[in-house]
Design a protein around this nucleic acid. Structure first.
Ligand SMILES: [Mn+2]
Ligand SMILES: [Mn+2]
Ligand SMILES: [Zn+2]
Ligand SMILES: [Zn+2]
Lengths: 117, 117
DNA sequence: ACTGGAAATAGAAACGGTTATCATTAACGT
DNA sequence: ACGTTAATGATAACCGTTTCTATTTCCAGT
């Protein structure tokens, strides 16, 4: 399962991952896929984002450090990006407003070069 | 409906808004609330965000220009923030990766001063 | 006022992704 | 082998949201 995840190049939904595993002959249930994804996510092995429709997408990233993603709406292909300026901006905004325990969600969605045509 | 929205100080779910309207004696159905929220959202009158659980939250903001929000997890109270640096960062990242039609989601969630205790 | 067609409304049912349940099966240590 | 524990997966439940559709409300034209 974790092995199968590592081979996927982009963000995929639980159902897509399930279908892919079945296609490869692995007789796994959708429940187990969700369960493994949750564990892997808690362990920090995989990242989870939500697409504009609200569906969760999963991917094993190269970096284990804090980062964000630029993801293709069409194929899920994703670029890992980091931005010190964004982190600093978030901290500054939070401090100025007197908010505590502030967390941020930063996601970029677009069309990758292959799907820009 | 739009009038009722204007009086709410923070982000609220459709169901909370519906409950509030009923509390005020307005005999409106949940379907109608969703319908109006969708129209108002398309018109740009109200903003929509998604809380960490995926539920949609709605609010009428003071500014009609592009901005983001720092929202209290506890009470929905929200501060409108803008960040040129974030916009520029997003554009730069997109350009470097060769992505087009890039849109960004930037949300900050924390605890407002009243709920930081 | 009356009327007829268009728009708005609201309850119920459907939808879709996710989670909980629980009986069955596999894995493990002794 | 045996008993215990953990993992699995089919099914049902969950929950916010959308669709369906019958009914009600509007409103212009007469
Ligand atoms: Mn960050
Ligand atoms: Mn922005
Ligand atoms: Zn693509
Ligand atoms: Zn608060």
């Amino acid at each position: 399962m974790a092995a199968a995840m590592a081979s996927l190049p982009g963000f995929r939904s639980a159902q897509e991952i399930h279908a892919e595993l079945r296609r490869q002959g692995e007789a796994v249930g959708l429940t187990t896929v969700y369960r493994h994804l949750q564990v892997l996510s808690e362990q920090g092995v995989i990242d989870t984002i939500r697409d504009p429709s609200g569906e969760s997408l999963y991917r094993q990233c190269g970096s284990t450090a804090h980062h964000h993603h630029l993801t293709c709406r069409q194929c899920g292909r994703s670029v890992e990006v980091e931005g010190r300026v964004v982190e600093q901006w978030a901290e500054k905004v939070a401090a100025e407003a007197g908010f505590t325990a502030v967390d941020h969600t930063v996601e970029l969605f677009g069309l990758c070069p292959d799907h820009s045509g």
